[in-house]
Design a protein around this nucleic acid. Structure first.
Length: 567
DNA sequence: CGGTTTTGACCGGCGC
DNA sequence: GCGCCGGTCAAAACCG
């Protein structure tokens, strides 16, 4: 009953935001009138409350102009009820403010027996009308801002896609760039939302959108375009779209035993053997055939970029068979890895049907207390706080990796930090074994070493160039990512440890600056394959024509790493 | 009985 | 082309 016009206007804003669309001014006006009608119904009691509360009564009388018409629920009903005959046409002919004028100035609409005092109500009405005008103007302004934001987002998205297409055309072989773009987009999105004090939800979205980033491009391939016109933040839809499009791509070239499950697109099955699971498998053959330079399918296919997600390995000391990261996992396989007597276990996230996130858990061959957990993929569901902490950690680390912050020169600059290790469970002292079948860039968060703290070990893919952004390696990296074993503890303290790492990585302002620089480097100039990163000097040079690509691995050590330290 | 784990088989990529 | 290896599947076993 006591809702004020300002609240009403805010409701209108909220409604607009909820719908995510920008409604017309007429619609807004109609909403306002609807509110008036609704309030009338409630305020009728106030009007009859009597004389002792004249101020309130006057206000209520003002709103009660159409109380007799009822306060139905549906908009059209309200519109008819409120507008009625003359007011309907009047509203159509004029603009925002007329409804109120009609309500307040048309004597024909006044209820019988309405005790208008003449002077005070008029003054009050003028004030209220002015307030409404002001709020309406503010509403318009906010709507305009929302439109502008939407346009900017669309433009940014389009630019990114265009840049990706151009780069793909320029290269003789497709570049795995989408993870990076996804990270950038989502980071930007997160930063945008962070200002709204929605950081947790934003991080969840960020993590989910990591997987979403490939959807548009894949859609261009499988659907012949069109899907990309929806930079909608609808995460679930995006993920579903990605899955469907992946299925489409895979189904087009599926063979062997995976064919049936992939072609079983009806979605009737569920669980780990469902098509959704299979959809997340990386159809390397399909992608590479699609992206083959010999393909003559046109620009759409040429624009397709293979999606190769980054992996994040977390090395911890734990006696438990698996670290507790807050997610629910189901083991779907176990394999003896070469060079390690300890079997490697494969897990899938079971917190949501179709969640593509997988992880591998393996103990160190020589130090059984060291557990290496490798995460891959992006959750398509909200995460509990504990899982969010880990997700933040891994996503931030992946973002840092994908931002190309480490080079071989970094290793030279930090020789003590060079820590060759197989990312899949081998011990630090064992020789690094490159898996030819796992061309994923991998970040390893080493939380086991007392001194060297957290290390980000980047293993460039053996066969596929990995794009780097123009990021000064050390300057923009978090300076707080120095966690010793004493700091983080063992085993059961993994959760807090992860949170600490997460906070260190994500809260660093330099990292934010790095993100901005990364976006600028993408938006500022088209990608070019001519530029290569040969060291920190080239990465720190300002504004070359686009982010260069990392040279092929033969020119780089099999692994490179950077130790982040505040020393 | 439903969900999870185990485990052998299969598939694709890659090197020789 | 063949073998190796990593990753995954799926039927069977297991478990609460």
């Amino acid at each position: 009953m006591e809702r004020r016009p300002s609240e009403m206007a805010h409701d209108g804003h909220h409604d607009l935001l909820q719908h995510g669309i920008v409604t017309s001014l007429a619609d807004d006006t109609q909403r306002r009138d609807e509110y008036l009608c609704n309030n009338d119904g409630v305020g009728g009691g106030g009007r009859s409350a009597g004389d002792g509360r004249q101020e309130a009564i006057e206000e209520v009388d003002f709103f009660a102009a159409s109380s007799r018409r009822g306060a139905g629920g549906e908009r059209h009903q309200l519109g008819e009820a409120c507008s009625g005959d003359r007011r309907e046409s009047y509203l159509q002919d004029t603009g925002v403010k007329i409804g109120l004028q009609l309500l307040t100035t048309d004597p024909g609409l006044r209820p019988a027996g309405h005790e208008i005092n003449g002077r005070v109500p008029n003054l009050k009405l003028m004030t209220l009308q002015g307030e409404l005008d002001r709020l309406s103007e503010e509403n318009r302004r906010l709507r305009s801002m929302l439109e502008q934001l939407t346009r900017n987002y669309s433009a940014l998205h389009s630019h990114l896609l265009i840049a990706m297409q151009q780069q793909t055309r320029d290269t003789t072989r497709s570049i795995p760039m989408l993870p990076e773009v996804g990270v950038l987009l989502c980071k930007a999105h997160r930063l945008a939302v962070r200002s709204s004090s929605e950081a947790p939800a934003a991080m969840e979205q960020h993590f989910m959108e990591l997987g979403r980033a490939r959807a548009p491009v894949t859609g261009e391939t499988s659907d012949g375009g069109g899907e990309d016109d929806h930079p909608s933040p609808s995460l679930t839809n995006s993920v579903d779209t990605a899955s469907k499009e992946h299925r489409a791509v895979v189904a087009a070239s599926a063979g062997g035993r995976k064919g049936p499950s992939l072609n079983n697109d009806g979605g009737a099955s569920s669980g780990p053997s469902s098509p959704t699971w299979a959809a997340e498998k990386r159809p390397k053959v399909a992608q590479e055939s699609i992206n083959s330079p010999t393909s003559t399918a046109g620009a759409d296919q040429a624009s397709t970029v293979p999606y190769r997600r980054a992996r994040v390995s977390v090395r911890t000391r734990s006696d438990a068979p698996m670290i507790s990261d807050g997610c629910q996992w189901r083991k779907y396989g176990q394999k003896m890895a070469k060079g390690n007597p300890c079997p490697r276990a494969y897990y899938r996230c079971t917190m949501a049907v179709g969640c593509p996130v997988r992880k591998q858990v393996q103990r160190c061959a020589e130090d059984k207390t060291i557990l290496t957990t490798t995460y891959e993929g992006s959750h398509n569901h909200p995460l509990p706080p504990a899982a969010t902490a880990m997700a933040n950690t891994t996503s931030a680390a992946a973002a840092m990796l994908l931002s190309g912050s480490t080079t071989s020169k970094d290793t030279l600059m930090n020789p003590a930090g060079y820590f060759p290790m197989a990312p899949y469970g081998a011990c630090p002292t064992s020789t690094a074994t490159l898996s030819a079948s796992a061309p994923f860039p991998t970040v390893t968060l080493d939380l086991t070493r007392p001194q060297s703290s957290v290390q980000l070990l980047q293993r460039p893919p053996a066969a596929i160039p990995f794009p780097l952004l123009q990021l000064p390696p050390a300057a923009y990296l978090p300076q707080k990512v120095l966690l010793t074993e004493q700091q983080v503890g063992h085993g059961q303290r993994q959760s807090s440890m992860v949170e600490t790492v997460t906070e260190a990585i994500t809260s660093d302002p330099n990292f934010t600056a790095a993100l901005a620089a990364a976006i600028s480097s993408i938006m500022g100039a088209p990608r070019s394959t001519s530029g290569t990163v040969n060291g920190a000097s080239s990465t720190t040079t300002a504004s070359p024509p686009g982010p260069p690509l990392v040279p092929e691995s033969p020119q780089l050590p099999a692994q490179s790493c950077t130790t982040f330290s505040t020393h």
